[in-house]
Simulated scan of single mutants.
Amino acid sequence: MPTFELGPNQYGKAETRLVRVERGPAGDRITDLNVSVALRGDLAASHLTGDNAGVLPTDTQKNTVYAFAREFGIDGIEAFAERLAEHFVASQPSIHEARVSIQQYPWQDVDGAHTFRRDGSEVRTATVHHGHYGTQTVSGVTGLVLLKTTDSEFHGFVQDRYTTLPETRDRILATSVDATWRAVQGRPDPAAARAALVEAFADTYSLALQQTLFAMGSRVLQRCPEVLEVRLSLPNRHHFLVDLAPFGLDNPNEVYFAADRPYGLIEGVVRRDGVAIPEEVAWTF
């Protein structure tokens, strides 16, 4: 007779949408978040027998997010995530670990009072793990779209019988940056980390997107001494020069076709040399 056992498991409330408006005489301020909670602990009975004595309902987790936003405010998404994660572990004997992930959507003030516009596709992120190992916070940004019209080349690569890509000494370089960074202590300034990514992309004469990735990660480490490592995922948003010769026209690097797929995907980690990186909490799903 076969036997079975319960493997790693977790549960929580995913994608609680929260918008908080701070009202004041100098105008309003808006914070727009997507909050996901995942909890682990002594929860086997719920799976094996349906005994929910140790289960904090996911609806309660949602309500906690809203209540904490009112009671404590949102002083940065890292601090808010840490407060929530620590609360779930401290308040529930059956919960041993908590993960709180937050996405923040940027809004720009339009009139200095009550009107805002959504600012592009860029999203700020923070993920907090809290448990017996302490608290680990990972911050980042997704969807940071960057493009430079020159100062980028690509040549000297391997060529075989299937290679059709021509070498180029001048190309458009574009990407949508997904980046995360973490520190052992303190919370690095997300604005400083973002500015470092943008500046390194802009002032690096790129011979490969890999080279640009390393320059961007290194700049964050230079600007933010608390950061131990930076993880980067850079899709290469290809722009191909259109052949206008059939129409009797030249094309001096002016007209391009922007391809959305397939695309090259360059990923890597840049970390401080000789600094011990704490083991990352392994939550596989």
Rank of each mutant, 00 (worst) to 15 (best):
T115K: 13
I266L: 02
F116L: 00
I77D: 01
I102S: 11
Y11K: 03
S218K: 07
R124C: 07
R124E: 14
A81C: 15
S121C: 11
R182D: 08
I77Q: 02
A258E: 04
A90S: 15
A79I: 11
E199G: 10
R161Y: 00
Q136V: 11
V281Q: 07
N236V: 04
A85W: 09
R83N: 13
E254I: 09
T16K: 02
L221G: 10
D151V: 01
A258N: 04
A69C: 12
A191H: 10
G120A: 06
L147Q: 13
I95V: 15
V227M: 04
W283S: 12
V184P: 00
L18Q: 05
P262T: 07
R223N: 12
F154K: 03
A276P: 03
L209M: 08
L6W: 08
L228A: 03
N52P: 10
A196C: 09
L84N: 14
A45Y: 01
T127W: 00
I266N: 10
Y105K: 09
G217E: 07
P93T: 09
A44T: 09
Q185W: 02
D28I: 02
A183C: 07
Q222T: 11
G112N: 05
F214L: 07
A85P: 09
P190W: 02
D28P: 06
L18F: 08
F285Q: 09
E5H: 14
E254S: 08
V21C: 03
G217K: 04
D119W: 12
G156H: 01
P106Q: 12
A191G: 10
